[in-house]
Amino acid sequence: MTQPMTKKAYLAPTLSLFASTSTLLCCALPALLVTIGAGAVMAGLASNVPGYIWLTEHKVGLFLASGFMLALAAIMRWRSRNAPCPIDPDQAQACQRIRRVSGIMLYGSVVILLIGGFFAFFAADLLL
């Protein structure tokens, strides 16, 4: 018998989305701004956003933490894939909608992490 879905199963994809978005901020955003000729905007961001330079200096740890959170979210989603939804039709529909949204968030987070990883570790070698 499977366990009902817990709040952790709903929370993990959301946290992984925020973690993977931070990889975009540290790595893909600077590449985009410099590519479109907005280097001054990038300089302004770097000097005015607290912690931004710290994120870029610790990008390996950031990617490892984000990858770990994504893996944890994927494991939690896998374990709760057959969890029963409530019997009430409205609650069952909400349960199915939340499962679908959390799946979209999880897969979107993976895409965001891959894009950020490309710009952080490979784009400079390939494009310059």
Rank of each mutant, 00 (worst) to 15 (best):
F121Q: 09
L33W: 11
I112W: 05
T2E: 14
A71R: 06
R97Q: 09
M105P: 09
A74Q: 05
S20D: 05
A124I: 03
L29P: 04
V49G: 01
L33I: 04
Y107K: 02
L72H: 08
A40E: 15
M1R: 10
V111D: 01
F119P: 08
Y10R: 08
P84S: 02
G117F: 11
M69R: 00
A94P: 08
I104K: 06
Y10P: 02
Q91R: 06
A124C: 05
P30D: 05
A40S: 12
A71T: 13
V41R: 04
T21G: 13
A92L: 02
I36F: 14
A94K: 08
S102G: 05
M76T: 14
G116R: 11
C95E: 05
S47G: 04
W78C: 06
A83I: 08
R79A: 12
H58S: 08
A74N: 01
F119K: 08
L113I: 08
L113W: 15
L32I: 14
S80P: 11
T56H: 11
L106A: 00
A9V: 14
V34W: 13
A94Y: 04
A74C: 03
I75H: 11
A40H: 06
P30R: 05
P13S: 00
P30F: 12
G61M: 01
V110W: 13
H58V: 03
G37I: 00
F122H: 10
A9I: 14
F121E: 09
M5F: 10
T35M: 14
G67P: 08
I75T: 12
Y52E: 07
F63T: 00
L11D: 02
I87E: 15
W54T: 04
P89Q: 00
L113A: 13
L29C: 04
A92C: 05
G67Q: 01
L11K: 01
T2G: 09
F118H: 13
L114F: 14
G116F: 14
D125T: 06
Q3K: 14
L128Y: 13
G37T: 04
D125R: 15
P86F: 00
F118M: 14
G116I: 05
F68W: 13
L32C: 08
L128K: 13
L33N: 10
T2C: 14
I87Q: 13
C27V: 11
G103K: 01
E57M: 03
A65W: 06
G61Y: 07
F119G: 06
Q93S: 09
L55V: 06
Q96C: 07
S66K: 00
L64A: 10
G37R: 01
L25T: 12
F119H: 08
I53H: 10
T21C: 12
G39M: 04
V111K: 02
R79L: 11
A120E: 09
L55W: 06
Q93D: 08
P84N: 03
G117S: 09
W78M: 14
Q91H: 08
